[in-house]
Design a protein around this nucleic acid. Sequence first.
DNA 1: TTCTAGTATATTGTACGCAATTAATTAGAT
DNA 2: ATCTAATTAATTGCGTACAATATACTAGAA
Lengths: 158, 158
Amino acid sequence: MATPTKNILLDEQLCFALYTASKRFNHFYAEALAPFKLTYPQYITLLALWENNPMTVRELGSHVNLDSGTLTPLLKRMQTQGWVERKRDENDERQVNISLSQKALDAKPEIFAHVNTCMDLLGMDEKTYAATRDTVNFASERIKNAKPKKIDYDGPQF
Amino acid sequence: MATPTKNILLDEQLCFALYTASKRFNHFYAEALAPFKLTYPQYITLLALWENNPMTVRELGSHVNLDSGTLTPLLKRMQTQGWVERKRDENDERQVNISLSQKALDAKPEIFAHVNTCMDLLGMDEKTYAATRDTVNFASERIKNAKPKKIDYDGPQF
DNA sequence: TTCTAGTATATTGTACGCAATTAATTAGAT
DNA sequence: ATCTAATTAATTGCGTACAATATACTAGAA
């Protein structure tokens, strides 16, 4: 007898809630950042660099969770727009140092002003905001290194 | 005097928590779905269709929150892999009806079995899982139709 | 020094996501 | 019936994501 499998409903899935929420936040930030011609991944790249400038591509990637396949073209676009500089490390030419331009340093308060409307619009007090974030991060940490179980499966391979 | 702007730290941002969590869940499902050669967006498309088959591209899009720019090529790939059929509606030729193939109907229990390991790995009981999802959906609804405030800004336009 | 393993970034290829536009079709008003 | 506005998909263009590979460089062992 086949093992009964619990039904999976789209709107009950945590993964789908996160997927949808992430896209909606992305959309919101895209509007807030439009005056600066910045995308959301470019914005978090700036956030990381404002906290720690300069960084190698690798260090930057470990902060924003993106690899060189994403960062290299992204950073080239940001360089074209004048947000960052890219320079080979003189001591170790494998590394590329990413540093903020003067424009990026100057624009920080303006960008923060545009983006800080986010929490207001959420209509959450700081406690609720922090609790929501921590809840998400809890699930995020749990799934981080999880590997799906190997299922015995002798049927047709789709 | 310039208005002081609160600092924004990457790891304290809800948007970044959601962005990271969404990517990690996506990665987890990618592994679980690899035996079926399905991506995560393709999987949620199947979830939607298993609940309501057939649907037009538009109806499907309203369930999974994707537009034709994403769905048209995605559905063509799924058709090539034998998961769905695409047929112009005979009564209204503007519409394209998407229906599940026999393969998709047959594979449902196997795919559910592979994916249902997710909640186990999260180490959450059903209550915690539901509460997490509801918390995410609460923030998601709040940001859904939010538009960033227009900020007075006479400085250089970046 | 020379070989080898390791490290850092870049490149390639595939698949989203979505804004904006186009094309085809339908429905509604006159 | 005909013209117009609305609706539905498809297309185009740009920017991620990321696995897999390639390339360049470094460091450590023999």
